[in-house]
Design a protein around this nucleic acid. Sequence first.
RNA 1: GGGGGCGUAGCUCAGUUUGGUUAGAGCACUCGACUGUCACUCGAGAGGUCGCGGGUUCGAGCCCCGUCGCUCCCGCCA
Length: 593
Amino acid sequence: MRSDPCGLLRRADVGRTVQLGGWVHRSRDLGGLVFIDLRDRTGLLQLAFGPAWSAVEVQQLAASVGVESVILCEGEVVAREPERVNPEMGTGEVEVRVTSFRVVGPAVTPALPVARGRGEKMPAEELRLRHRYLDLRRPELQENLVLRHRLLQVSRRFLTDHGYLELETPILTKPTPEGARDYLVPSRVHPGEFYALPQSPQIYKQLFMCCGFDRYFQIARCFRDEDLRADRQPEFTQIDIEASFIERQDIMTLAEGLIGSMWREAGHHDVPAQFERMTYADAMEFYGCDRPDLRYELRIRDYSSVFASLDFAVTKTALANGARVRGIVLPGGGAWSRKQVDELEALAKGAGAGGLLRLRKADGEYDGPLAKFLTDDAKAALALNDGDLALFVAAADRVSSPALDRVRQECARRLELIDDKAQRFLWVLDFPMFEEDPETGALAAVHHPFTAPHADDMAAYPDEPARWRALAYDVVLNGTELGGGSIRTSDPATQSRMFALLGIGDAEEQERRFGFLLEGLRAGAPPHGGIAFGFDRIAMLLSGATSLRDVIAFPKTTAARSLYEGAPVAVPAEDLAQLHISVRESRAGSIRE
RNA sequence: GGGGGCGUAGCUCAGUUUGGUUAGAGCACUCGACUGUCACUCGAGAGGUCGCGGGUUCGAGCCCCGUCGCUCCCGCCA
């Protein structure tokens, strides 16, 4: 039916008779001559219709065919005269003089333009999603999905070459009360019982390790019923990896290789063989964040000792309560207006800080609420230059870190310190095992409950689990988390203890909720660990898209709806009855579960 | 759950500041002209629930209240 794709014809094809198929991208009817730009996923090609080579019926059909219609045609590839070459088209040196022409898929007038004029804006996202069959015809989205395909293939090749088996895990799984909300699926044959869609294949892949499939991977679809963001969809794809008889270093080396292979596939050949490393403690201390963007410095420093001797009420009180005074120095920030600094303070307050102390030095003079309290020693210790702005937060670390993180990021943006071309890959290591609720003291797993703590920490502080570090690792690029993983607890007794520390102390309840993992571990479990990468996010970064929706063919809106087919929908009562479900009216009268 | 932005022709937008005649433009669409265009050009035409509901007013696209949708962010996402 087709001898060639549209976009690949070149000067070398001149003289050939070709059969083509594609979509009418645009047409130009000059009266005696008609031109059609024919499109397929390889690109555009100009079809020419004229009385010298096209029959009258062919010319008439060409003049009347609507854009986005699908046509089949036959003709001869001819070279264009030099002055008629179109340098912006890959096929711009040739055109096809059409001798036969058939409209096989006539199109109604498209609801939104596929061929946009230069400088013409994109249609609203809502319309793009509603008419996704048109939006996906755009070359940009086609390129994104092609890149996505290539990244998947190179990942499969890399992992297969390293001895990993691609194994599948169930989509209908057991609900887990921890973590994100589950999507539930009713069981017809078991009234009142539900499956859950997997948030991740975590437990299944650990069971694979217990079974001896010592190298596993899966391009796994995962589901989380939480609110969306530009970089968060309710269903998403992760590259999920697990291995046995390995240590943390082995997984990190594998991950560096996998990332390198994907980045090279996307044209980035400067990925380091080994990534930088930083402990979680250092990341929080110097950047206030567990995924620091290292493209710029603006490090956070501890100024507590400087403030210890100053008779300034705010910092004095904080220090007396065991808090610290931390801050950052911004070269050039002294020129910012009061309003601009107020905006920074609003950011800090939004992150939970009580305020942001400001100190400016200009022409050797200090300016700000602190200025008159500064001693010569303090001035020397601060070491400000003219034009500097220093910003401080006097608070507990759990308050000052996120506040200074936001301030630091905004300042880097304002000072234009971010090098767009830089790629700073970073491992963040030694996360704490648990996070302590400041009010109740209850422990929650920072990574997940199956992560193994550092054996040294358990031995050194047997009764202080809040001090244990986890054998967990995140890989970060320019402030974005690409993936994360850990060495798992393979000893069932230790795993039981971890559940107990997380408030699931009752043995019966442990068995009820996690028995299928504990049984697997008791049956003989190798040391194992793994990692998972957020694949959509990687595809987004490598395609240059700013939204996950531009690398997913049929994404959901921020209200978790699919505008094209209209999911989710209300279901007739008789269908629900089969599932033993009844729906009650919400106060607004709309249908809710 | 909370905060910000947006919603006017098929698409992109102007009009909203200060309420006032028949709501405009470009592209797309329909018809006509045109033999080298490539965002073809030129002429004519058709196309509107100003997201929806209510209110204020002699009069509402514009003001007020509510609501829906899309989007960005916070919370949330072990």
